[in-house]
Amino acid sequence: MLTFILRRLFMLPIVLFAVSFIIFALLQLLPPTQRAASFITSEQQAMNIEAIAEEFGFYEPFYIQYGIWLREVFRGNLGYSRTSAQTVLETIAERFPASAELAIFSMIPILLFGIWLGTAAALNRDKFIDQFSRVMAIVGWSLPTFVFGIWILVIFYGGFGLFGIGRVSNTFLTEILRGDIHTPTGSMLIDAVINLRFDLFWDAIAHMVLPAITLVVVVSAQIMRVMRGSLLDALSQDYVRTARAKGLPQRVVHLKHARRNALIPVITLSGLTVTGLLNGSVVVETIFNYRGLGLWFARAATQLDTPAVTGFALLTGVLIVLANLVVDTLYAVADPRIRYD
């Protein structure tokens, strides 16, 4: 098991090297002035487009540009992100905890809801709960996230003045900017506890409710459908019939024998979903102005903020490698027949 994990971790640098190399290679397809154009917001600045391209070394050959970047990376410098007006590392350090907090906060209901409804639908095939879950899945799948997000924002925040946008209310935001509330971890909930500020704790939770509901409705649909299909498949297997023939109680047959086996695809999918959420949900974070990685990346990508996009891609690479590792380990937990030794 240990060698398996180590082997996987050794892959990490190779993945990161490949990802960064590809991004740099792709950027060479753009002429230097076009890359410099992303720094320009007004006609006045457009006058200096050549000088800007020169200043950022866009006229240098590919290997030199990549070499300079790589050397800086080994010094722990991923560059400066124009869109966050901070260094890339600072931005990630500040925003990853935000996205992670929202990911964890919403992943628990997403998994519970998805697995529970998927199980119920499979066990009650074509009955009401199954039809209900089917409608839910269609709605969740087909409803664009931004439409649903804006709906519930208009209803709850606009209509009833509840919850609000951002990570915390204005008063707390001012206190944080003032330094009266210290935010060493970047996770509002943990920071609130460290500062013994329970008003901030509730406020931070209240600000995660609407984004979390949006994510639950949109994301759990897929998990629910996979759970249902996989469980239906398992229920028709020989070992389930054997278990029933042994006279085991219905509940044990369904939950221990059938569902446990049916969880493998759900685990795979959940791994991908968690990675996606840790990376920040672009749409949800934009609508609710939740300052996580997604909001940053969306701005960075549209403004061709190269250091930000590269840094974000590297982070994604790390997360995916780690998530795959966790998923593979969990297979062994769910299914004792899987061994990596």
Partner: peptide, 22 residues
């Protein structure tokens, strides 16, 4: 005495904040 400038990209969200007095 105090000024807070917040950046919110989504126009609908800005409108709701104004409507709510935030």
């Amino acid at each position: 005495r105090n000024v807070l400038i917040q950046v919110v990209d989504e126009e609908a969200s800005r409108l709701l904040a104004l409507q709510n007095g935030d």
